[in-house]
Write a protein that binds this DNA or RNA. Structure first.
Lengths: 338, 338
DNA sequence: CTGAAAGCGCTTACAG
DNA sequence: CTGAAAGCGCTTACAG
């Protein structure tokens, strides 16, 4: 029927003059094989260039050692950093991470999950909340350990390893309010199917409404970048000349805001204060250095990996972690101009 | 022995009252199944929540639909962008990309390749040249279609989908020389096991030696970042006050150079001209905007995916592509100060 | 400590 | 157009 493509366990067994069971044990259960025999087998396997077929292993043992991850995009370094950390931690135990990007709208990721489950992912990492009830039921039914990141909910079916977007943005807004700003604009990422952005906007609006201050929100409908930030600050200055502070829900947008402001001769922070989110490496090197919210991206990746590993290896229940964010104040924010 | 974890093809067949062969055909060879039967089967499969077990599929059909990629790191957006494009193109045909990062030294990536081959990767993407002869032989023997990117060699065993690092850096150097610069420093990434950096340094040194101009090279031994660029320009100014131009082999380093120069009161380009590489989005938004080399990262990802697909689907030989780079001149370079 | 054998869930040549 | 059956390459309970 189909021809053999490479050397398999039977070849090794034949050359070593042992059964396939013993070859298998030499790799997977070495302490149970007589040392001399084991060494000989390992040597022969190496000579023949044998590597175990992971599909056969997976089929037989029901352990694929595949973990799935669904992220908005790898093109933003905040996600790339998290996945990098997630992957590195898991690869130490021979796990492989399949990454699928879904864009910022996670209300319809059933297809993406299916893709990963077809690959027999043993566990899943998802960015944000699961917004699709059917998906939640499905994952529960299939009994797939699933970790949500970047957000935090207390009453969730699946554990969250993230931070409190509401409290974090409240802190940012309060920082500006305390500096005297009473007319603030938030520039946010796409809202549809994006609980992080929705929560941040809520936090901002509630705070400002509560203080009876003026505010507005500008949403980037698609993928945001520096150019979007630059364009947006220009239109803010044009159309809302009384705005004295701008909250950007990403450092990338804030980068653009600083660049755009410079272009049209607006001085930051003298005329407008600007804040970012993420504390990417460039934030402190911008002119002026950017006040921003540190997001524990790497930590989320590592902790997600560890709790999944604990669950898979030792049947421990998945754990939630509420991580800290810090507001790092730099020169891009100052007291409201008189 | 082991218990069934989820619904399989036999369950579907039983409910639909057909053989497993017909269920299989309904998915993989639909035109060969009577439409009414096929629809019924597909409906039942959906109702039951059936998804094919990819391990069994892979084992039986010898097609894993897994492609492996080895990149220095996902933490640099230039690689993340390439992989993103590579992945997107391949996923349209149901392929999955397993990404492994190896750091910048690719002289010893045999282990990483083994990891990918154990997962039965059907093809490989590698950044840079294959420096390990044994690895080359191994891949040849195993008959694994392999594409190298980011470099270009005419006489290579495996095809390259990349650009000419030598010519590109010669262009950059020539740009500065033509502007009158006669004392130039190159800041490069780690050289060990990194053919791209080695080639760039060669191009730079040959050009400068040939012109009997002064030059030096500063190597970042580990992973480079903005901080490294910033520190380095400070030591250049300190120790080599006659340097009038700095070539950075990455925009990230150049970002740091601009930031560091500003800190110590060196004006760019009035006192020192600076160039980058990659043309990342931020390059044009820096102060001053950065003269840099555009690298076709996305194009490399897409073309690599396409040639692999052509090879796998239609047995076409893998193709090489020599892609263009452009020197984008912006305000960070100007004539040598008198 | 080792071997013989069952079986994981599919695909596919073969026969009808 | 459909079904019966072999077999992909492993792991693991069972027997010795």
């Amino acid at each position: 029927m189909q021809k053999k493509t490479s050397v398999n366990i039977i070849d090794v067994a034949r050359v070593a003059n042992v059964s396939v069971a013993t070859v298998s044990r030499s790799f997977n259960n070495p302490e149970v094989v007589k040392p001399k025999v084991r060494e000989k087998i390992l040597q022969i396997a190496a000579d023949l260039g044998y590597t175990a077929n992971s599909a056969a292993k997976a089929l037989r043992s029901k352990k694929t050692k595949v973990i799935g991850a669904i992220v908005p995009t790898l093109d933003h370094s905040i996600y790339a950093t998290m996945i990098h950390a997630f992957q590195n931690t898991l690869s130490e135990q021979g796990y492989v991470v399949y990454v699928v990007s879904c864009g910022f709208d996670s209300s319809d990721i059933f297809d993406k999950v299916t893709l990963l489950l077809e690959r027999s992912a043993e566990a899943l990492l998802i960015v944000g909340e699961i917004l699709d009830e059917n998906l939640e039921k499905h994952l529960l039914k299939m009994n797939i350990p699933t970790v949500c990141t970047y957000s935090y909910k207390y009453d969730s079916v699946f554990p969250f390893i993230g931070f409190d977007n509401y409290a974090s943005i409240t802190t940012v807004t309060d920082h500006l309010y305390a500096l005297g700003h009473r007319n603030i604009t938030m520039i946010c990422g796409p809202l549809k199917g994006n609980d992080r952005q929705i929560t941040r906007v809520e936090a901002f609006e509630n705070y400002m409404a509560n203080k009876q201050a003026q505010y507005s929100v500008i949403e980037c409908k698609g993928d945001y970048n520096i150019a979007f930030g630059s364009d947006t600050i220009k239109s803010i200055v044009q159309e809302s000349p009384n705005v004295t502070a701008v909250i950007c829900n990403s450092d990338v947008i804030a980068f653009g805001v600083l660049a755009g402001a410079k272009e049209i001769g607006i001085s930051i922070p003298d005329q407008i204060s600007v804040t970012g989110c993420d504390n990417l490496e460039f934030a402190e090197y911008l002119t002026p250095p950017l006040t921003t919210l540190r997001i524990p991206a790497e930590q989320m990746g590592v902790l997600s990996a560890k709790t999944i590993l604990e669950n898979l290896n030792n049947k421990k229940p998945l754990q939630s972690f509420l991580l800290e964010t810090d507001l790092i104040t730099r020169a891009s924010t100052s007291a409201k101009p008189q």
